[in-house]
Amino acid sequence: MSSAGPAGLPDVDAQTPAVLVLPGPVAREEVAGLCADVRSLLQAGPAAVVVCDVGGLGPPGLAAVDLLARLQLAARRAGGRIRLRDPDPALPALLDLVGLAFEVEGQPEEREPPLGVQEAVEPGDAAR
Rank of each mutant, 00 (worst) to 15 (best):
Met1Ala: 13
Ser2Arg: 15
Ser3Gly: 15
Ser3Thr: 15
Ala4Gly: 13
Ala4Asn: 14
Pro6Asn: 11
Gly8Val: 10
Leu9Tyr: 13
Pro10Asn: 09
Pro10Lys: 11
Asp11His: 15
Asp11Met: 12
Asp11Phe: 14
Val12Gly: 07
Asp13Leu: 14
Ala14Trp: 04
Ala14Phe: 07
Thr16Trp: 12
Ala18Met: 13
Ala18Val: 11
Val19Ser: 08
Leu20Ile: 08
Leu20Thr: 08
Leu20Gln: 08
Val21Leu: 09
Leu22His: 06
Leu22Tyr: 07
Pro23Thr: 07
Ala27Pro: 01
Ala27Cys: 06
Glu29Ile: 06
Glu29Arg: 12
Glu30Arg: 11
Glu30Ile: 00
Ala32Pro: 01
Gly33Tyr: 02
Asp37Ala: 14
Val38Gly: 04
Val38Asn: 01
Val38Met: 02
Arg39Ser: 15
Arg39Asn: 04
Ser40Lys: 12
Leu42Cys: 08
Leu42Ile: 10
Gln43Asn: 13
Ala44Asp: 13
Gly45His: 14
Ala47Glu: 07
Val51Met: 03
Cys52Ala: 15
Gly55Pro: 04
Gly55Phe: 05
Gly55Arg: 06
Gly56Lys: 00
Leu57Pro: 00
Leu57Lys: 03
Gly58Ala: 00
Gly58Phe: 02
Gly58Glu: 00
Pro60Asp: 01
Gly61His: 00
Leu62Thr: 02
Ala63Gly: 10
Ala63Thr: 12
Leu68Lys: 01
Leu73Ser: 14
Ala75Asn: 05
Arg76Trp: 06
Arg77Tyr: 05
Arg77Thr: 10
Ala78Glu: 05
Gly79Cys: 00
Gly80His: 06
Gly80Ser: 05
Ile82Lys: 03
Ile82Ser: 05
Leu84Lys: 02
Pro89Val: 13
Ala90Thr: 07
Leu91Ile: 09
Leu91Trp: 09
Ala93Arg: 15
Asp96Asn: 11
Leu97Trp: 07
Leu100Thr: 00
Phe102Ser: 08
Phe102Trp: 08
Glu103Cys: 06
Val104Lys: 04
Gly106Tyr: 10
Pro108Met: 05
Pro108Arg: 11
Pro108Gln: 10
Glu109Val: 11
Glu110Met: 11
Glu110Asp: 11
Arg111Thr: 12
Pro113His: 04
Pro114Arg: 11
Leu115Met: 08
Gly116Ser: 00
Gly116Gln: 01
Val117His: 08
Val117Tyr: 07
Gln118Met: 08
Glu119Lys: 09
Glu119Met: 10
Val121Thr: 11
Val121Glu: 10
Val121Ile: 09
Val121Gln: 09
Glu122Gln: 10
Pro123Lys: 00
Pro123Tyr: 00
Asp125Val: 12
Asp125Met: 12
Ala127Val: 14
Arg128Gln: 11
Arg128Lys: 08
